[in-house]
Design a protein around this nucleic acid. Sequence first.
DNA 1: ACCTGAACACCGTTCAAGT
DNA 2: ACCTGAACACCGTTCAAGT
Lengths: 270, 270
Amino acid sequence: MATAADPDASGDGADEPDPDSPEGRGGAAFVLPAGPPDTGRTPLDRRRILGAAIRFIDTHGLSALTMRRLGASLGVEAMALYRYVPGRDQLLDGVVETVIDELYGDPDVHLEAAHGWQDYLQRLAHGVRRIALAHPEVFPLVATRPPAAPWVRPPLRSLRWVESFLTAMTSCGFSEDSAVAAYRAYSSFLLGHLLLEVSQKGVPINAQDAGESPAPTADLSEYPTVVRLQELLSMDESAEEFEEALENLLGRLEHVRREGRSPAEPESFT
Amino acid sequence: MATAADPDASGDGADEPDPDSPEGRGGAAFVLPAGPPDTGRTPLDRRRILGAAIRFIDTHGLSALTMRRLGASLGVEAMALYRYVPGRDQLLDGVVETVIDELYGDPDVHLEAAHGWQDYLQRLAHGVRRIALAHPEVFPLVATRPPAAPWVRPPLRSLRWVESFLTAMTSCGFSEDSAVAAYRAYSSFLLGHLLLEVSQKGVPINAQDAGESPAPTADLSEYPTVVRLQELLSMDESAEEFEEALENLLGRLEHVRREGRSPAEPESFT
DNA sequence: ACCTGAACACCGTTCAAGT
DNA sequence: ACCTGAACACCGTTCAAGT
């Protein structure tokens, strides 16, 4: 059904594959898989564009995202996008914002601190992790696009989240300073762990997949400890690591809340 | 002479500023400040290219780096670079590698674990922080370029560093598992903290510098806690945060080393 | 041996023009 | 009101040609 509606699916506007292109990883021209049913008449719209951009990045990778190709994925020329988005950079900012706000609709996350701040931070952390893993190609963008203000720290990059975090914490007995310190520690924790976890997913567990893996094995003899521990190093324990580090952070924060100091001093029970 | 050859430039190789270009932040054409004295005859060379690339990024920002402009900064056409570097992506990989290896020449860092692992990790962390702050525009690249293998974790992205880290730790009483766990925790810590610190530097403390800051102040009333804590949030305490978090991590690791477990359980003194 | 000119297939973006 | 065609000033990259 609907085969006639979309003019460039099989025929005229196609991409001209050009398999020698150094960019396209697989060389496969970006012909999208039939798209959502309504690819035709709804007159385009910022939300739809951002959604398409996210899907495009998830599918083809960030480096493949081009105004022209994004347009094509919506059945439109690139120039049409400029009516809704000021330019490519702002498009990317919009993508980041949209992905983060996805989290705001997550029912597991949005009950604020009804069951205490530890429960809230747990749910929030897992929510962020879920979207990071759902959009591994987008997350580096979340991590590195310059924030709007210096106190909006990735990955919780929106005033909504800063507000939510700080009110939750202060309403749970954190002083203002401690709440801010907690916000900082929490951001660093999430950013470091999730960026690493996501970037590990990008690497096909065996370094390069081309040919017979020549160079790496050669030099490797200079690094005996790495070779010896290779198996251990290759294990993916990101999930456990995340839980443990989160647990530990919460412990630190509880300590801060009670003592009123900033999060340091591993043992000061005296 | 030569005025007839190139139809679109006024002089010979000049850039044609075009102040309306959305890319160039300052709009200033990339005329480099006289360059190092020997800009002439040494016949070009991979090292020199990578050095120039790093300086270029430090000065003009990553998004301004272009094969053509990098060539120009070396007094050469872009095409000459391809004799020494396979392409732009590999150039960036080389930049990352070079910046990280800079650290390897740092005398403060390179004495391995002669004074114990805590001292070693302290010096290493401060060394990485120093290069992150020295090359704030390069660090996001260090953080996000896909690593060569899944067990080479940013920001310590080279076998040399993995080897150095693991031998130091195992020679100081860490079991193999604990050493690997420590490597992971340490990487996350560095990545999160330094990426945040570096990205904060990029933001001019007052959000946008254009006009009279219109939009932000308008919405801001919806976020009372943010507004109330704005001063606290705006303070730059990255240095103290870094020290404290590092101290805490070392405490955790010492605990791991003694107990042989992975880094969790905030309080198990019983 | 080392670099350049010219060319190719793309980019982002603008703007007058079509419907 | 919404999209397109054509154009402009760039890109990365290749390759035959210059010195």
